[in-house]
């Protein structure tokens, strides 16, 4: 843009050119709001209608497929604190177990079918200094009336009845001793690992003419017959670990709501202090007393 000067200092300019510009400006449309597509979707004329079945690739069909495997209620965000053992005093069996702790887990917001296309409960855990948060996140927390959270995760639920009210706290007694859960966490990072460590390849010979490639992979694929290319998904060296892993069907051995402790059978991925998301196991029947305690039923 041309720099502006006060009127009296301004030079007289060629009226023909500047006149035309003013005309253009006055023709500019009044500002409009919202994002609009340049190519608005056109409804298909085929395969849709009242009598026709729901198409498999639509969100409606996806929700229907998921209905049986989505938990009825939300899970919780826990922290892995370490492992120890518990003895079954009757059989004398020693059961290795992982100790998880829940810290100030509260419902931050909901995701609904109407707005987001699915039902989920957004939970937050821990506490974060408000000064270290962006204004938008701070507003997200304060508008639902809860303190800023360190960790925020979503837990999908089957329907509206699983949406725990915003601001409600999820404590260790949300789970019951003897029920089964799925534990979801990031595994320990191993850094950039070679194929022998990462994928269990055999490596190559120590000798017999092998030079400098004792631990590397052999061929990356066929030559001309196979298209002279490396197929997608070829196992190669790369970053190992630090990826999400779900351990299914862990039995809850002990619950201590006072200290927020949940003790589960066996091991959970990740180092001590990592965030573990636990939710009712999808491959076991839903806990009975939980079914009855759901708000809607």
């Amino acid at each position: 843009m041309t720099p502006r000067l006060p009127g009296k200092l301004a030079q007289n300019s060629l009226p023909s050119i500047w006149g035309s510009r003013h005309i253009i400006r006055s023709q500019a449309p009044i500002r409009t709001f919202g994002i609009r597509s340049l190519n608005p979707p056109v409804n298909s004329r085929y395969n849709v209608g009242h009598g026709l079945p729901v198409l498999k690739s639509t969100p409606t069909a996806a929700l229907e497929r998921k209905a049986n495997t989505l938990p009825l209620r939300t899970g919780a965000i826990a922290t892995k604190k370490g492992m120890t053992a518990m003895y079954d005093t009757e059989t004398g069996k020693r059961i290795p177990c992982t100790v998880l702790q829940l810290d100030r887990v509260e419902v931050v917001s909901h995701k609904t079918v109407q707005k987001h296309g699915y039902y989920a409960v957004q939970l937050g855990a821990g506490w974060r200094r408000p000064a270290n948060l962006t204004k938008s996140l701070l507003g997200h927390f304060t508008s639902s009336g809860i303190s800023p959270k360190r960790h925020v995760y979503e837990f999908r639920v089957k329907d509206e009845s699983g949406l725990l009210a915003v601001g409600k706290m999820v404590n260790a007694d949300w789970f019951q001793e003897g029920q089964y859960i799925d534990a979801r966490s990031n595994s320990k990072g191993k850094g950039f690992a070679g194929v022998m460590k990462r994928h269990g390849f055999g490596g190559q010979d120590r000798s017999h003419g092998v030079s400098l490639t004792h631990r590397s992979l052999g061929s990356a694929g066929p030559s001309q017959g196979g298209g002279s290319r490396v197929y997608p998904g070829k196992k190669m060296a790369g970053n190992m670990g630090n990826e999400q892993n779900t351990v299914q069907n862990l039995k809850i051995l002990k619950v201590d709501p006072e200290n927020g402790i949940v003790v589960v059978n066996g091991s959970v991925s990740g180092p001590k202090g990592c965030v573990v998301r636990i939710q009712d196991a999808i491959k076991k029947p839903w806990p009975e007393d939980i079914l009855s305690s759901l708000p809607s039923s």
Binding site: T79, K81, G82, M83, T84, M86, C97, V99, Q101, L102, D103, R104, E106, W127, P130, L138, F141, T142, S143, G145, I146, S147, P148, M169, K254, D256, E258, N259, G260, I261, V263
Partner: peptide, 22 residues
């Protein structure tokens, strides 16, 4: 809106949960 104060922490209450279970 005022920022709500954090609720009491379970981490502060039980510093060594593994020890507590043991």
């Amino acid at each position: 809106r005022p920022i709500p104060p954090p609720p009491p922490s379970a981490f502060n209450k039980c510093k060594d949960p593994v020890g507590a279970v043991a």
